[in-house]
């Protein structure tokens, strides 16, 4: 960042600084737009996350209630036995999605295949309901994890964008403007200097011409006498 001390007060530098101010202002506008878009995305995601969280709470209550009923109707040992029969979850795949340059995670997989649907038909109703509830809980937990990670990343990016735009708005542009002011001042000063110098030269030349003409007149008088 140039300081007033190491700026060359030249026309070229003046033009260059002026151009940098324009670019900085354009960048600032873009950063503000990005920040707005990120904030919008943040609020949308946070609304979804909040809805998912409250849904998760309700689903967890339902899940625990169904586990209680399953224990009551089928017994905890049968429940454990059936839990053992449930196929493993498929691997979780983490992809990413680009939102205004922010890479937010997108979870795929992690669920069971159709096999379990058939398996559910062979289970006591209470255990069936408990499994279904916790399948739903699992789905919501993955969604919540995805949304909350996205929220953290968006928040970090918003902060970063805010810091950048503040730096441009409050530090970078004012410094460039100060540089322009300094260059203008120096150029004006130089112009004034030149003007004064020219004036002085002109005055001195005038005085010299006047003196010469006086000398000449004096010489002519002497010749005439």
């Amino acid at each position: 960042m140039p300081t007033a001390i190491n700026i060359r007060p030249t026309r070229l530098e003046y033009i260059r600084t002026k151009r940098r101010i324009l670019i900085a202002k354009k960048g600032l506008r873009l950063l503000k737009l990005k920040r707005q878009a990120l904030i919008l995305e943040f609020f949308n995601t946070s609304k979804t996350a909040a809805a998912l969280r409250s849904g998760l709470q309700a689903e967890l209550l339902k899940g625990y209630e169904s586990i209680r009923m399953a224990e009551m109707l089928a017994g905890s040992m049968r429940l454990e036995n059936e839990a053992m029969k449930i196929p493993q979850l498929s691997n979780l795949q983490i992809m990413s999605k680009n939102v205004m340059g922010v890479r937010i995670p997108k979870l795929e997989g992690g669920a069971r295949q159709q096999l379990l649907t058939e398996h559910l038909l062979e289970l006591p109703t209470s255990i069936n309901e408990a499994i279904k509830s916790f399948q739903e809980v699992h789905r919501i937990v993955l969604d919540v994890a995805e949304k909350e990670t996205a929220l953290r990343k968006l928040l970090y990016e918003i902060e970063k964008t805010k810091r950048k735009s503040n730096a441009i708005e409050n530090v970078f542009i004012p410094r460039l403007q100060a540089a322009v002011k300094f260059i203008t001042f120096r150029l004006d000063e130089m112009e004034r200097d030149t003007f004064i110098m020219l004036k002085t030269v002109k005055r001195k030349m005038g005085e010299r011409e006047q003196a010469a003409s006086l000398e000449e007149a004096k010489g002519e008088e002497i010749i005439a006498e």
């Binding site: 649907t117 058939e118 559910l120 038909l121 109703t125 069936n128 279904k132």
Partner: peptide, 20 residues
């Protein structure tokens, strides 16, 4: 009947239910 109810509640295909 419980298989039918569970299947209807979960929206399972008739073909799958008939196997059970």
């Amino acid at each position: 009947i419980l298989s039918l109810l569970k299947a209807k509640d979960s929206g399972i295909d008739r073909e799958i239910v008939s196997r059970h």
